Amino acid sequence: LGLVWAVGKNLIYWKLYKPDYVPDSLMSYFHGTMTSTYVFICWSGLYIGIKYYQLLQEQRQQTLRANALAHEAQLKMLRYQLNPHFLFNTLNAISTLILDRDNETANRAVTRLSDFLRYTLHNDPLKKISLEQELKSLSLYLEIEKVRFQERLEVELDIGKKASKALVPSLITQPIIENAIKYAVAPREEGGRLRISAHVIQGRLVMELEDDGPGLDGNERAREGRGVGLSNTRERLAQMYGDQYSLELTRAQPSGLRVIIALPYET
């Protein structure tokens, strides 16, 4: 190709600028062949390099899209693992209310259950919402549980004004509260108390979810890994925040379990 390019270039040059020129030898037609060959190799290398870079970029984008889709699918899977025991217990409580002819309370419970399930199914698990919205959805859940436990379940809230505007993953607190009800309220005849607090401390949202149940029973590691709820919460937070979050289990005073979640403060 370099040879052809050199011959063509020489013929065009002679025709345009030296119309009366007659080559004195055959080699005159091949003058500049090496230079043309080098230029052609350089242009070819540049073209191949650009095409290779574009191919790498396309493959990189495909890998990023695949990772994003996998990330989204994993979060949705974790988000939609609604505890079937919660549904079973709620429906059983509603059935008992109907048998006792307490239709008004039963109707209220069905309405709350419907609202809560609609919220969990329609809300995007990848979307962050304000803590104020999160607590409203949590109140739906707690109202359903109060149908079962009535006065045995007490809830105390301590939410800072600034903290209420912070963004958090949707339904991030519900599995922890569900665990607290399962282990601290349901097994005890007298029921139990739940305390939920949230404040902004040194640029981080710090949430504390506390019960007055048996606590860690002297085996912190066993309790930390108990239940799908806590492990799902850890995985969701790890997916969304990486190493920018913390989740700790401590003993509440005088008794009980305290779950402390710290997240970057975002609005």
Rank of each mutant, 00 (worst) to 15 (best):
T35P: 03
P84V: 06
V110F: 08
W43L: 07
T63N: 15
L26H: 14
M34S: 03
L135W: 03
L99M: 15
I94L: 05
F30N: 00
P23G: 14
P23H: 14
R79E: 09
H122G: 10
Q62G: 08
T35D: 08
D100F: 13
L78R: 05
L55R: 09
L91H: 06
L113Q: 03
L97T: 05
T111P: 00
S28P: 08
D115R: 12
W43V: 02
S95I: 06
D100L: 14
K128C: 11
E72L: 03
W43H: 03
I41G: 01
S25C: 13
G32N: 14
I129D: 03
G49R: 03
L75M: 06
I129V: 14
N83Y: 11
L82W: 06
S25E: 14
Q61M: 08
S114Q: 10
N67T: 04
G45A: 06
S28Y: 15
L135H: 13
E72S: 09
N107C: 01
K127V: 05
N83M: 05
H85G: 13
E58V: 05
C42V: 08
S36C: 12
L99P: 00
H31Q: 10
Y29L: 15
D102F: 01
L26G: 15
Q62K: 12
S25T: 15
A70Y: 02
H122L: 12
K76R: 14
L91R: 01
T33E: 06
G45H: 02
Q74S: 05
T37M: 07
T96A: 15
Y80V: 05
Q74E: 08
Q62T: 09
Q61W: 02
Q81M: 15
N92A: 10
M27C: 04
Q61G: 05
F30S: 04
Y52M: 07
S36N: 02
T63C: 10
R60I: 01
Y119D: 04
K76G: 13
Q54L: 14
L56R: 12
A93D: 09
L131K: 03
L91Q: 04
S130N: 11
D115C: 09
L26A: 15
L121P: 00
D115W: 04
V39Q: 04
N89Q: 11
N89G: 07
C42I: 08
T105M: 14
S25M: 11
H31W: 01
L26M: 12
I41E: 02
Y53P: 00
Y80G: 01
G32M: 11
E132N: 06
Q57E: 11
L91C: 15
A66Y: 06
Y29E: 08
K128T: 15
L99C: 05
L46D: 09
R60E: 07
F86D: 10
D115K: 13
D24C: 10
I129T: 11
N123Q: 12
V110H: 02
F116E: 00
N103K: 07
G45I: 01
N89W: 02
L64V: 13
L113N: 01
T33Y: 07
A70W: 01
I48H: 07
N107T: 11
F40D: 00
R79L: 07
Y47R: 04
A106M: 07
R108F: 09
T63Q: 15
A93K: 01
E104R: 13
H31C: 05
C42K: 06
K127D: 03
L87S: 13
A70H: 09
L26E: 02
I129R: 08
R60H: 06
L46V: 15
N83W: 13
Y119Q: 05
T90H: 03
I129E: 08
R79K: 12
